[in-house]
């Protein structure tokens, strides 16, 4: 059951800012999506192995051999703020 409180919780987890109108507006579509997916509950899945991946592949890996990394300048080129070779972000309070 989706309520405006559920929407507010999801918005906070997703770091999306929603106003009171938005909170109410998103209730029906989310409720509809859940109802649609809830159809799966009609199936008896007690004998079905959970799917870990949709591709029929396992054990894809690489050998432990280093390849060149990006330069510091290239790594930082899209960052809005940098300092001392680092990404600069608003202070994180521990």
């Amino acid at each position: 059951m989706i309520t405006p409180e559920t929407v507010a919780y999801l918005a906070r987890l997703a770091r999306i800012e929603l106003n009171e109108t938005d909170l109410a507006r998103f209730v029906p579509p989310l409720q509809e999506i859940l109802a649609y997916v809830a159809k799966l509950n009609e199936l008896d899945t007690s004998q079905v192995e959970p799917t870990a991946h949709v591709l029929p592949l396992t054990n894809v890996s690489r050998s432990d051999d280093p390849l060149p990394s990006l330069s510091n300048a290239a790594a930082l080129q899209s960052a809005p703020c940098t300092d001392e070779g680092c990404f600069l972000v608003p202070p994180v309070i521990e």
Binding site: D65, P66, S69, L70, N72, C86
Partner: peptide
């Protein structure tokens, strides 16, 4: 290990910041 968990960047401590990085 010589490289990181999911990419081939060197897994090394003490290098200048953001020099062992890739996409």
């Amino acid at each position: 290990t010589a490289t990181k968990m999911f990419c081939a960047c060197p897994n090394r401590f003490g290098d200048p910041p953001n020099t062992n990085v890739c996409p």
